[in-house]
Amino acid sequence: MSETILPKNTSKTKPNEEVLFVRPSSGWAALNLMELWKYRELTYFLIWRDIKVRYKQTVLGAAWAIIQPFFTMVVFTIFFGKLAKVPSDNVPYPIFSYTGLLPWGLFAAALTNAGRSLVGNRAMITKIYFPRLAIPLASVLSGLVDFAIAFVILIAMMFYYHFIPQEGYEFYLTPAILTLPLFILLALITALGVGLWLSALTVIYRDFNYIVPFLTQFWLFITPVAYSASMLPKKWALIFALNPMTGVVEGFRWALLGTDTAPGPMVAVSSTIAIIVLITGLFYFRRMEHTFADKV
């Protein structure tokens, strides 16, 4: 009968064996990030699955990661750059808007994917235990691949505008580019923070399925993607930066395009807000986590 003999379980009678208590939880739970770390392989596999599945059965495959921001950039350039003549901090408008669209794409995808991630993984949540945080985390992190692919276009554009200077515009690399990883991290923190809130809220209130697309659209307008934050009155700049994506986008431009907008105070405000959103998101998620299996 035994096709495969499993190795005998050498029941290690460790003096202090692992004892697990399963009991009702109440109120705010500890974050227990150690456990998430223990399950890092699962998180990795979930990211891997998301990426594998995303472009399977699409004709253009990963090219979609480029097509979306690229054509948005073209449309923005025509309507905002050429027709509305939106000022672009002295850099060519196409590269100006594309630099904003990159982190925006990462954020918008995270919002959409994380929001429905728990509901989409209902089968797993109701059958297997694992830290539920792994699911929205994986869906946010899997967006990094699209981001990296879209980044290739930016590099190409940077070469293009570097060697073929446009009249009336200046564009050059500065050492500020070394800070780019920090702004990517800030984008991820923002995306994860908002994603955690939305994923938990979507489980409890299905209305968020409808709110998220609207929210994403609305958010794009209050973020300086198509325009520059320097257009705003100085005294409003910091209030504007309460939207953490403002700091991210302005930071990206400062780091990559060498715009002399000195977004320091804005980035500080945005980072603070992003971290607050992430921490509250983590706690809210953990608090609601134990109800997911029954509600999802």
Partner: peptide, 28 residues
């Protein structure tokens, strides 16, 4: 409850050792 998918409302369970649960095959 024993596989920690959902929480009990009352009482507790004490589990000594690593639990593998098979509530379904092919999950995920």
């Amino acid at each position: 409850i024993l596989s920690r998918v959902t929480e009990p409302t009352l009482g507790y369970a004490e589990i000594h050792g690593r639990v593998g649960s098979l509530l379904e095959v092919g999950t995920g």
